[in-house]
């Protein structure tokens, strides 16, 4: 074994330099040309950073579109899901409570209109998106809270709906933060 240890040690050193120093520095260099310069893409309102384009935020006020429930309360210092199993009775109770609470805040919405995604926590706890269906059922509440016509907000939702990749791969989605920034800009 002895005659293999020395080459192993030296080869380890070479590969640390190659894989753990040169390679990440090269990628960091490449990323300087990418949007966000490798620090993550930020969104600004009037020159002030209000968040990261890809990282979801907590919205609880009636005048904003809400995102999905989060197991980490949308604090991106950490991340994670609830890890609740589908048959867990405590978990099913939490889902039922979320449905009730949604109905209280959105009195015009029928129970049978609430998509499951609005009452289930995402995997990362930072899901930045909702589906168009989940946005549509919130329009009325926002129109009332902001005193704006429903048509205007519907238009905004449609403008912010992102089509599947290349028009045919994957689901449709809406970035909640971008939509809410557009709402604030609505005059």
């Amino acid at each position: 074994m002895k005659k293999y240890i020395l080459p192993s040690l030296k080869l380890t050193l070479v590969m640390i330099i190659l894989c753990s120093a040169i390679y990440p520095l090269l990628i960091a260099g490449i990323s300087k040309m990418a949007p966000g310069k490798g620090n993550g893409e930020k969104l600004q309102v009037n020159g002030k950073v209000v968040g990261y384009a890809n990282v979801g935020q907590k919205f609880t006020e009636d005048k904003y579109f809400w995102g999905r429930p989060s197991a980490v309360d949308y604090n991106a210092a950490g991340s994670g899901g609830s890890n609740k199993g589908p048959s867990n009775p405590d978990y099913l109770k939490i889902v039922a409570e979320r449905i009730d609470s949604f109905l209280v805040h959105n009195p015009s919405v029928k129970r049978s209109e609430i998509p499951a995604e609005m009452v289930t926590a995402s995997g990362s706890g930072l899901d930045p998106n909702i589906s168009p269906k989940s946005a549509k059922i919130q329009i009325k509440r926002i129109a009332v809270a902001r005193n704006v016509s429903e048509e205007k907000i519907t238009e905004l939702v449609e403008k912010n709906t992102e089509k599947p990749l290349a028009g045919l791969l994957g689901p449709e989605k809406i970035n909640v933060l971008k939509l809410n920034i557009a709402l604030d800009n609505l005059k």
């Binding site: 499951a116 289930t120 899901d127």
Partner: peptide
């Protein structure tokens, strides 16, 4: 049994991936 729009297994999943 909860009477919502769908029963999609979205717990622990992300909207952009489906």
């Amino acid at each position: 049994h909860m009477g919502i729009a769908d029963n999609a297994a979205m717990e622990g999943k992300e909207v952009r991936l489906g």
